[in-house]
Design a binder for these strands. Sequence first.
DNA 1: CCTAGTAATGATGCCCAGAT
DNA 2: ATCTGGGCATCATTACTAGG
Length: 534
Amino acid sequence: MPRRPKTWEAQDIVAALQSIKANGLSLRAAAKMYGIPTSTLRDKFHGKRAIFARCGPSPFLTAEEEQKIVNWAIKMGNVGLKQTRIDIQNVVKTLLDKDSREHPFVNNTPGRRWWRGFVKRHPNLKHRKHQLTDKARVMVSEERIETWFKEFEARLQKERALSMLNEPHRLFDDEIGSSIDGILNGFPASSTSAPSTPAPVTAHPAPSTPSQATPLPGPLPTDVAQTPLGNESSASCSEYLTALPGMSQNQQKKKGLPPAAITVAEFFRYMRARRARENQEEKVELRRKDRELKEREMGEDEKRIDEEDEEDEEKEEEKEEDEEQEDEEQVDKEQVEVAEAVMLLQEEGERLAEDIMVTCTEMGQEMEEKKTQEAERKRNSKKVSWEVQQKNKEQVMEIMNSAHEPDAEELRKKLKREHKKKAKKLKQAKREARKEKKRKAASRKKEEHEYDADVLRKDTIVESKAKDRAKSNIKTLRNDQEIYVCPACLKPSGNDEKWISCDHCIRWLHLTCTSMHLLRGIDLAGFDYRCKFC
DNA sequence: CCTAGTAATGATGCCCAGAT
DNA sequence: ATCTGGGCATCATTACTAGG
């Protein structure tokens, strides 16, 4: 029976159903009027099939869950936190970890194919190459640094989050929290995945019209990330920049330079230095204009007096600058507090993520309850129909009993035999189904076991490689004495040197050779430190 | 109303070519 | 070497439809 191509839309069904209800049309008439097969309309009319149903199996995440994830990814993208495929897959994994629903995903993580389908179902998500891989983006230019920060500020302003610079906790007003380090590192830091694995494919909202918001500033330019920021002004910044003209990511990697990354302290320091510079330039300009004006108006004598006054003013300004420096020191202290706040906020973000997952789980439970109710309803309807059948049979038996006794007896025996046969067949089918189920479960378990073994093997290889790398930093002196050198500065330990161990590759580095020394007053034991060579 | 055939969909694995 | 997208085959599931 070849199936006729579908010629109707969901709204036709809705219109047909409304016509039946409002105008009292018959099912056949309505079906004819809207060009829908009668049986299809009848099924939908009786609720046997959903009105907006799609062919094929439903996705394993509900429409609400998928939409929630899409909205979250778009929102994150709007503030510069583009979510990678891995991030989204990890979100799904976290969701499924806390959910008992059945799904085909290995280790609760959907695969690349699922991602394709996901993007297909939600075309407002599209993927593209990570901007860090674009060579044009790593060309060094102070102008670009300024542009990036300006765009970042503009974006924060657009998202009503400009005050984040003073109130970083506002970063966490989203559904799933993210750390400020996520923004500053230039790649996303979802609550479920550390920002340690930037994937080359990024999902972000596709601008539907050219009039939409300007492109995101994107990740922090590599050159910005490597700029030594401190009390330095733009001059020293430029010096450093000219030392690294147009270096590609690979070249940086070869030279042992860290990937794009900037600490919270560095970010605030940069912003403060930039504002101070702007203020200073404004002051100088004002002073110059003022002087020109006075030169024209006043004579030589007055000028001398003015010069004396100016000297006094300059002294006062110097005094003010000294005070400003003291303020800066005070701000440095505050940055330590900011770093602490960031840690607290990360925890808050995780709590928020937890809440989201709980909500999703509740939704899943609701679905489960609905399913159970549906199953119950079906069982009841089957029971009712079975009862009706039994009644009919009883009626037949009564009629047969009332007829000639010997024939009725024979018929009864025959019916009994048939009934026994049917019951036997049914039992056998059930037994086979149970066997099949067991076989499938065993097979799945075996696959999971093999997967775990594979993961363990890979982890062992990674660990062994890391140990080898650490060994490579042991240098042998002329007197055959072996010493360990810091892989960052290639120097051995000094007397008062503090060392820090990478939690991922077992390398030891001078604390001062890492950005960790900026986090003064914080217990480093609580940090998951990843060195720049990882 | 029921049934059997067909279409559509979601997910997987495998392979390939291209980009980095 | 690694990652990606695209194509293809496969399986399972569900919706749709014609005909009995």
